[in-house]
Structure formats: structure tokens, C-alpha cells
Design a protein around this nucleic acid. Structure first.
Length: 359
DNA sequence: AATGCGGGGAC
DNA sequence: GTCCCAGCATT
């Protein structure tokens, strides 16, 4: 058995004084660890924790999760973002139920084969749940090791990432894998932070290359820059006199896949829709006559990583709604809370509800 | 190798 | 405004 590396010894000594008290670290239940890791992908602990608690309470076992309707899972995921995680979560739960007899797989390669589980998540589960020696490489580890080794190459290049992974695989050797992985991520989150890390009091003051060369502020570097596009979404809220409304299940390859919204007309500028344009659209798409239109008085700005959205909501009364085809659905207005919707939509709905309280 | 996918918090 | 967060699937 190999002895821990010098890096690991210092790291774990630093970690002795740290206690983050995360709710999914109370035991080694692989289901709970997997669930927490999926939820925490690209998500801050403070944002994801309430969702973890909801899921583990609503679905105590992975079979409970597998048996649940997708709409229920999406609703519980509403507001967390990156909704493919929720779909993959459901898919993987069904795989465990059907292919692994309901028992979470214990072999690294089987864990990695699950939908939504990549190299990082597989290593996290394997080490935290089963004590297997797989080094995690997440945003924290990339930052810590790129600084430690003074790597100025862009960390969003696969060659750089491969190099970091190799170093991580060496550094973990001989240590308790669970402790080591937890420690290095805590170190990145609490000590070696993206901005103004606490280098003055650091366990690696004398061995960190970036600190020695005064490169801490410029490492890690990235090559790619994201460019945004702007979209104008005109939502038609079609409602009949019986209180039935038409909602839309987003099945296309686009943002918010699997969520529900309203019938949408998209434009490249922020100009409002004309009355005749609306009448024709509603007649062509649903065979319905428009009785009245309340035009939007404001646009809801919503910012995503790659897009800036402006949403406007047109309240439209139509004649009797019937025979609506997929991906459209007609429901009672009061049934809306059962369907997962984008935050842009729920922001609007919250505003309208508030308006009614004061009118 | 490159791209798209959310929402929010820190600065 | 910018950056980035317990990343992944798809092309």
C-alpha cells in the first residue's frame, strides 16, 4: 500500500479544522450521494441544498424516484436550471431499478455508465460511497491544481484537463479517497477561491507554483469566451370563458426542454404583435376566434448564460377550447401549479397574482 | 474539439 | 456588467 503524498498530508492536515456539515454527508448511502452530486453540478451549495432535501424527502429510495412520473420530477426540479439533469436523473433511476435490481451499482464503470454521470460524478460516488480510489476533478480541483503547478495554459482545453487529471490521480494515491476528495474540494471552495484567495495563510505557501511566481491572480486561464444572443418571446395566454387555458410542453431541442410554458411567437426585435397577426396565428394554430386581447405593459427580462430573453404576455380571451393536440394541452387555470415552468413564466405569474391582491 | 444548457450569488 | 458554481451530453 502506497503512502500518502506530501500534498495529501498537508491538505488533510488543513482539512482537520474544517467542518462544512453538508446534509448528504451524514452517511454513505450511494443513492443520496448520487442525488446530491447531480443536483450540485454547476450549482452552488446554498442553491442546491433545499432541492436535495425536497428530493430525498419526496423520494426516499431510488425506486421511488424511478416510479415517479417525469412531470412530478420536473416540478420538483423547477427553478434549479439545467433541466436535462432532472431527465437524466429519472432515466438513471429507471436503469438502476431495471438493470441493477434496484441496487445502486458499486463498480466505477457501471456508475459511469449511468445517464448524467460523467467522470467527476462517478469519482465522487465511487470514493464517497464505496471508498474507491478515484480522484475528483471539478471546478475547485482544476483551480487548486492549476495554481499549485503553475499551469498557465487554458484549463478549458482538453489537453490541459488531461494533464490536471493525471496529477490528481497521482496525488490521491495512498490516501483515504473519501477524505482526500472532500478535502481538496473544500480547499478550493474555502481557501483557494477564484477571487482573492487567502494566500497569506496557506498550507502550500512554500510549494504553490502560482504563489511563488505571483501568478495566482491570472490562474486559471480560459480560452473560450461566450457570446450571447437576444430573443424576444411573445407569450399568448389563451383562455376561454370556462377558465380553460392552453399550455405548451417544450419538446424541441431548445432551452427549458421538458418544461411547460404558453404558446409563443418569437421575434428578432422588441416590437409588439399586431392584433391581426395574433388573430391569424390563433386561428391557424388552434382554430379559435379571438374575443379580446389585453396587451402587455412590460417586458420580463431574463438572463441565461448564453441568451438574454425578453418575455411579454398577452392575455387573450377565445371561444370554447377543445381538441388541442400535442405538444399543446388545455387545463384548468388552477392546475397550473402542477406543471414545471421556467422562472421567466413563474415571475410573470407571481406578479399577476400579486396584482390581483391589490386590485 | 466545440457547443448548448439555468439560475443565482459575489464582486 | 463579469465570473463561476460538487459538469454533462451531443455533435
Amino acid at each position: 500500500m502506497a503512502k500518502p503524498t506530501q500534498f495529501a498530508i498537508r491538505l488533510l492536515r488543513w482539512h482537520e479544522g474544517i467542518d462544512r456539515d453538508l446534509p448528504w454527508k451524514k452517511n454513505r448511502n450511494p443513492y443520496q450521494i448520487w442525488l446530491s452530486e447531480i443536483i450540485m453540478q454547476q450549482t452552488r451549495v446554498a442553491q442546491g441544498t433545499p432541492y436535495y432535501l425536497k428530493f430525498v424527502s419526496e423520494y426516499p429510495t431510488i425506486t421511488d424516484l424511478a416510479d415517479a412520473p417525469e412531470d412530478d420530477i420536473m416540478k420538483l426540479w423547477q427553478g434549479l436550471g439545467y433541466y436535462s439533469r432532472a431527465r437524466n436523473l429519472h432515466h438513471a433511476a429507471k436503469t438502476v431499478r431495471d438493470e441493477f435490481d434496484g441496487d445502486f451499482p458499486t463498480a466505477y464503470k457501471d456508475i459511469l455508465s449511468l445517464k448524467g454521470v460523467g467522470k467527476y460524478t462517478a469519482a465522487a460516488i465511487a470514493s464517497f460511497a464505496y471508498g474507491l480510489e478515484y480522484a475528483v476533478v471539478d471546478g475547485n480541483v482544476i483551480r487548486v491544481l492549476s495554481r499549485y503547478y503553475g499551469i498557465t495554459d487554458a484549463v478549458d482545453q482538453s489537453s490541459t484537463l488531461r494533464f490536471i487529471q493525471e496529477k490528481a490521480d497521482l496525488l490521491i494515491k495512498g490516501s483515504d479517497p473519501s477524505d482526500y476528495n472532500q478535502a481538496i474540494m473544500d480547499f478550493g471552495a474555502l481557501q483557494c477561491t477564484p477571487k482573492s484567495p487567502n494566500c497569506a495563510i496557506c498550507a502550500f505557501e512554500d510549494t504553490c507554483t502560482a504563489y511563488q511566481k505571483e501568478l495566482v491572480s491570472i490562474i486559471p486561464t480560459k480560452a473560450k469566451k461566450i457570446k450571447k444572443r437576444t430573443r424576444y418571446l411573445h407569450y399568448l395566454i389563451l383562455e376561454d370563458s370556462a377558465g380553460r387555458v392552453i399550455i405548451h410542453h417544450r419538446r424541441e431541442k431548445d432551452i427549458w426542454q421538458s418544461l411547460y410554458d404558453y404558446h409563443c411567437i418569437e421575434s428578432l426585435t422588441d416590437t409588439q404583435l399586431g392584433e391581426e397577426e395574433i388573430r391569424k396565428d390563433v386561428l391557424d394554430n388552434f382554430g379559435l376566434e379571438v374575443e379580446s386581447i389585453i396587451y402587455p405593459t412590460k417586458a420580463y427580462k431574463h438572463i441565461l448564460t448564453h441568451q438574454t430573453l425578453y418575455g411579454q404576455f398577452y392575455q387573450i380571451k377565445v371561444d370554447q377550447i377543445s381538441n388541442i393536440n400535442s405538444p399543446y394541452l388545455n387545463i384548468d387555470q388552477g392546475a397550473i401549479p402542477k406543471y414545471a415552468m421556467p422562472v421567466l413564466i413563474t415571475n410573470y405569474l407571481d406578479d399577476t397574482k400579486k396584482d390581483k391582491l391589490f386590485s
